[in-house]
Structure formats: structure tokens, C-alpha cells
Simulated scan of single mutants.
Amino acid sequence: MTDAAARDRQLATIQQALALGVDWFDTAATYGNGASETSLGWALRELGLRSAVGRGSCRAGGPAELESAPPVETASGSAGASPHPAIRIGTKVRLAEADLSDITGAVRASVEGSLRRLGVNSVALLQLHNSITRRRGDQPTSISPDDVLCADGVLAAFAQLRREGLVQHFGLTGLGDAESLEVVLRAEAWATMQVNLNLCDSRPAVADARLERARWTPALLAIRVFAGGALAGRPPSAHTLTTKFFPLAGYERDLRRAETMRSLLPAGISLPEAAVRFAAHHARVTSAIIGFGSLEEVVDAARWAANGPLPDELIATLTRAGV
């Protein structure tokens, strides 16, 4: 969705996703520096579907769950739902160091830019894309709990946007340290939290530690389902070669683990299928966000998810190999 020269392929992929019942699309202002949002907005306009963009509802209390959210989100969308009565979009805000002197203004500018690129009036979910650590910068682009919770912090800015009808639900990215994330969760305002979860990283350990202590339990969205491509047999992406978050050394480690796991699979189940079924049907996960690059990959992800959970014995065997 970040290649402006691939419009025909993008349109065909979204059409196929919609035909499979996808009604939830995940994007971010930082994906392709806004190109993902622009492409999604263009496709919805071309398909005459911008008027169908709505807002999801969320049940109060924990575990929080986005009503009508299907069990799998295939890259920019989620598969397994009934034919879309409305299309729901989630996007994200990532604050740079220069933004921290005016968090309110930076959040608003990011969201208004996202809405403009998407061509919609509101989004169902707005997620904070930064890690949360005790001090700013302890991890790449991390911010502190105070940056989130202070009177003019992220949560206050999100709440104001909700009062204006621009967003409906709030989400976190489950990266950082457990203590700081637990502090932020006490606000009991978060509908979702995206966490790394795949066969090479099979337990959202930081998430579990903080969730066990938190009264408010957000819905977990599994990300990095293919471990940056290692579980799908793909070469590292250009992003993997430059990112500070999931560096090349991690991909190479997971690729070695993937080779071991592949030899343990029964006939008829590929490693990509096992990866999708593991994340999509994990007991702690509400939706699995799965990266795709083509129409065929959307079809595959939906078909694999529909095959149901992996046998417990196979999961135990594969996750031991992934340690």
C-alpha cells in the first residue's frame, strides 16, 4: 500500500479482501510516510466506499473487544467477518522527539493529516505507536508514562479528538518496559494493545506481566505474525534493513528458527499457514494483523485462518523450536 505505482494491484487486493468479508483496515501515518493511508483512501474512493466508512463500538470493561472485529486482520484488513455493513479504519500516531514540546498539537496534526489522506471524517481506532519506557528515549522513539498521562499528554489529546467525533477508541503499542506500560494501563482508557506474537516469539511476555496486574484488560492485537517475513520464507524487507525496532540480526535469528520448525510440520501444513493459525487463534488474541503484498496472500491468510487452531501438541513442539 506504500507504492503509488502499484495502484491496480492495490485496488484488486482490497476488492478481494472485501469479497472475503474484510471490514477492518489497519494503517498508520508512518507507513510509507503517509503513502499507506493515501492509497487506502484512494482505493475506497475508487470503489465508492468512503461513505461506508464507519466507527466500531467497544464493550466497556475488560477484556475489551472491538465489536464486529473479526479474528484475523490481513495486513491492511481483517478476514473472517460477514460481508461488510460498514468499513472501519484504525490508524496510529507516533511522536518524534521534536513533538514532545507540544504533544497536543502534534497528535492533532497527525490525526488531521491521516483523515485528510484517508478522505474520511473519523476512524474507529487511534493507536499510540510509540514504545513506553521510564524515561524518554530509553528505547527508539519511546516516551514516558507522564508524556501519556499528564494534563496535556497523549491521552488528553486522544480524549479531545474523541469528543470532537474524530476517533472512537484508543489503543497502545505493547513495546517498552512492563512497569511503565502497567502505569499507563491504569488509566483504563485503552480498547486495544498491539503486541509482538508469533511462533518465534510465542508468548507476549511483557503484555502478560502487565495484564496480570491490570484491572483493565485491553484486546490484544498480534503483530509480526510472520516474524518480519522469516516464517513466510521471505527475504528481509527494506524496512527490516533500516529499522531500529526489529533489526536484521533478529530476522536472521528467526530465519534459523523457522528452518527448524519447518522440518517439524506434518504433511499438508506449511510454515506460513502454521504462523497464521497460531496467531489468529491464540487464546489471548482478539485479532492478528498479518502483512500481505498481493491478492493471493489475502486469500491464503483467510483460508488458513478458517482451518482453525493448530493442535496443542504441534504448538508446543513448534514453540519449543522457536525458543
Rank of each mutant, 00 (worst) to 15 (best):
G21M: 06
V22A: 15
D23K: 12
W24C: 11
F25A: 00
A28I: 03
E37C: 00
S39L: 12
S39I: 03
L47P: 04
G48S: 01
L49W: 04
R55S: 14
R55T: 15
G56I: 11
A60M: 13
P63D: 00
P63H: 11
P70S: 11
V72T: 15
T74S: 15
T74M: 14
S76M: 13
A79E: 08
P83V: 12
I87V: 07
I89Q: 05
A98Y: 01
D99L: 00
D102G: 06
S110T: 09
V111G: 09
G119V: 01
N121H: 12
A124M: 10
L125H: 11
L126V: 07
Q127F: 09
N130R: 05
I132T: 05
T133M: 07
R136G: 06
I143A: 01
P145L: 10
D146R: 12
D152R: 13
V154I: 10
V154Q: 09
A157G: 08
F158M: 05
R163N: 13
G165K: 13
G165L: 09
G171I: 03
T173E: 04
T173R: 06
G176T: 07
D177Q: 11
L181M: 13
E182N: 10
W190Y: 12
A191C: 12
A191E: 08
M193C: 15
N196W: 10
D201M: 07
S202C: 09
A209H: 12
A209M: 06
A209S: 15
R215Q: 15
T217N: 06
L220K: 06
L220S: 06
I223P: 01
R224V: 01
R224D: 14
F226Y: 13
L231V: 07
A232I: 00
R234G: 07
H239A: 15
T240L: 12
L241K: 13
F245V: 15
F246W: 13
R256A: 15
L265P: 10
A267Q: 15
L271R: 07
A274Q: 08
V276N: 07
F278E: 01
F278C: 00
A279S: 06
H282W: 01
S287W: 05
S287E: 03
A288W: 03
G291I: 07
S294T: 12
E296T: 10
V298R: 03
G308T: 01
P309V: 04
P309I: 04
P311F: 07
T317N: 03
T319A: 02
V323P: 00
